[in-house]
C-alpha cells in the first residue's frame, strides 16, 4: 500500500516539477509548482513527518504559491522570456543533470540504505514540539527576527517608487 502511495506521490512530484519549469504559461507553471509541493508534502507524510507535511502545505501552497500567482498577475502574464538562443546551454544543462542523476544513482546502489525502522515515539509530535521550543528555542527566536526583517524589507522594496 505504502509502495503504491510512494510511487503515486513521486510521480506526481516529478511530473508537476517538470511541468512547472516547462509550461508555457506562468499561471499554469505556478499551479504545477503547487502540485509538486503537494507531492513533496505527501512524501513527508510517508516518512512519518506529518507535522512538517502540514506545514509544507500551509506555507508553500497557502502562501508561496498564492504569492507567486499574485506576482504573475501584477507583473502581467505576458511578461515572458526571450526564447533561448543558444541550444548549447540547454544541451549542456541536460548533460550535466543526467551526469548528476547517474552518479547519484551509482552512489546509492553502492551504499545500501536500509528501509527505515518503524518510528515509534521518535516521530511523535510531542518530541518535535519540545525539541523546537526548548532545544532550539533561541534559533526559533532568531528565525522570527529574520522573518520580521524580511517582511520589513519586502515592504520597503515595494514602497520605494510610489512617487514616480
Amino acid at each position: 500500500m505504502t509502495d503504491l502511495l510512494f510511487l503515486a506521490f513521486a510521480a506526481v512530484t516529478i511530473g508537476a516539477a517538470i511541468l512547472a519549469i516547462e509550461a508555457r504559461d506562468l499561471v499554469y507553471g505556478a499551479a504545477a509548482l503547487g502540485i509538486a509541493f503537494l507531492g513533496v508534502a505527501g512524501l513527508f507524510f510517508l516518512l512519518d513527518a506529518a507535522y512538517v507535511g502540514w506545514f509544507q502545505i500551509a506555507v508553500y501552497i497557502g502562501a508561496v504559491v498564492v504569492l507567486i500567482l499574485f506576482t504573475v498577475m501584477l507583473v502581467g502574464p505576458k511578461m515572458g522570456e526571450t526564447p533561448l538562443g543558444l541550444k548549447r546551454v540547454s544541451l549542456l544543462a541536460a548533460i550535466l543533470v543526467s551526469l548528476l542523476l547517474g552518479m547519484t544513482g551509482a552512489l546509492a546502489n553502492a551504499t545500501a540504505f536500509p528501509g527505515p525502522d518503524s518510528c515509534g515515539s521518535g516521530c511523535s509530535l510531542t518530541l518535535l514540539s519540545t525539541s523546537l521550543l526548548k532545544s532550539y528555542g533561541v534559533q526559533l527566536e532568531f528565525m522570527s527576527l529574520v522573518m520580521a526583517a524580511a517582511v520589513i524589507g519586502a515592504l520597503a522594496l515595494s514602497k520605494t517608487d510610489r512617487g514616480q
Partner: peptide, 9 residues
C-alpha cells in the same frame, strides 16, 4: 553543477 558532479565523482 559541475562542482557537485566533481564532488560526487
Amino acid at each position: 553543477a559541475i562542482g557537485i558532479i566533481l564532488l560526487l565523482a
